[in-house]
Amino acid sequence: MQELRVKISGFGGQGIILSSYIVGKAAAIFDGKNSSMTQAYGPEARGGACSSQVVISDEEIDYPLVDVANVLIAMSQEAYDKFLPILKKKGILLYDTDLVKEVQIHNEIVAKAIPATRLAEEMGKKIVANIVMLGFATAQTKISSYDAMKSSIKESVPARFIELNMKAFQIGYDYIGD
């Protein structure tokens, strides 16, 4: 497998870092690959720009940072504006339709949109927007197998919210990209 470099970005409080953790764990523990997750955040906890990154590979990972991405997940306009330039040619952009409104898609990348936050709100829990997005990412990219991602989510969220998160994952997975 080709090395995959994934950037997940948004603002503090959206579960951006948890999302990377789940992606990395799916690869390292459940898909039998190597993965390396690193995070960057501002001094403020909520509302500030937040990004995290995962490298997934069959080989040992030397360079752990993502300054060129194969997959970019953008959960805010700021995140989109900041990180679109690092997306490789033929890279995949996944973004939240309602949070990233000014989009200039060019034909060198593959762009797929999902109203992840709105879908989560329709479930009654805005907080699972990140899991909806991970379901969408599992269907649209090669970051994880279906089973590995589900197992990783199950092990990474509180027991009483597993069912809710599984539902959110499935909604994202089944969504046909805009």
């Binding site: 953790y21 523990i29 190597n34 993965s35 390396s36 997750m37 690193t38 990972i61 752990p64």
Partner: peptide
């Protein structure tokens, strides 16, 4: 970096 890095 290594403090906040997560790996197997």
């Amino acid at each position: 970096i290594v403090g906040h890095m997560t790996e197997k």
